[in-house]
């Protein structure tokens, strides 16, 4: 379905670009700025959670290695911690979507 949309889109662009090229330049500039800042936004948002998740998983692995009998509890807690930490990166992703596509 999306491919059909895509084809229609491409075809319509081919017919309309000549007509309103002047009108689209401003929008294009906004889109370009949005796209580049979207990249920065997501890239920056991914740093902290990346470190955080790595730390959580590393600590969880060492805890499991030290006490294999409590691995289930550690794993559950690890997933919870990952979920909380990951939320920041995901908000960054949402910002990315907002900047890039809206």
């Amino acid at each position: 379905m999306s491919l059909l949309h895509h084809a229609i889109e491409l075809a319509s662009e081919a017919t309309t670009t000549a007509a309103d090229s002047a009108a689209t330049t401003a929008a294009d500039a906004k889109a370009a700025a949005g796209a580049s800042s979207a990249g920065y936004a997501y890239g920056l948002a991914a740093i902290g959670p990346g470190i955080g998740i790595g730390y959580i998983v590393g600590q969880a692995v060492s805890a499991m290695a030290r006490q294999p009998e409590s691995a289930g509890m550690v794993r559950t807690t690890m997933f919870l911690g990952i979920a909380f930490t990951e939320a920041l990166a995901l908000i960054g992703f949402v910002v990315f979507i907002l900047l890039k596509f809206v």
Partner: peptide, 16 residues
């Protein structure tokens, strides 16, 4: 028809 479809597709939506 293509223009109409394009207009419909270009309608800005917020995916969030």
């Amino acid at each position: 028809a293509l223009l109409l479809a394009a207009e419909e597709a270009k309608k800005t939506v917020n995916p969030i």
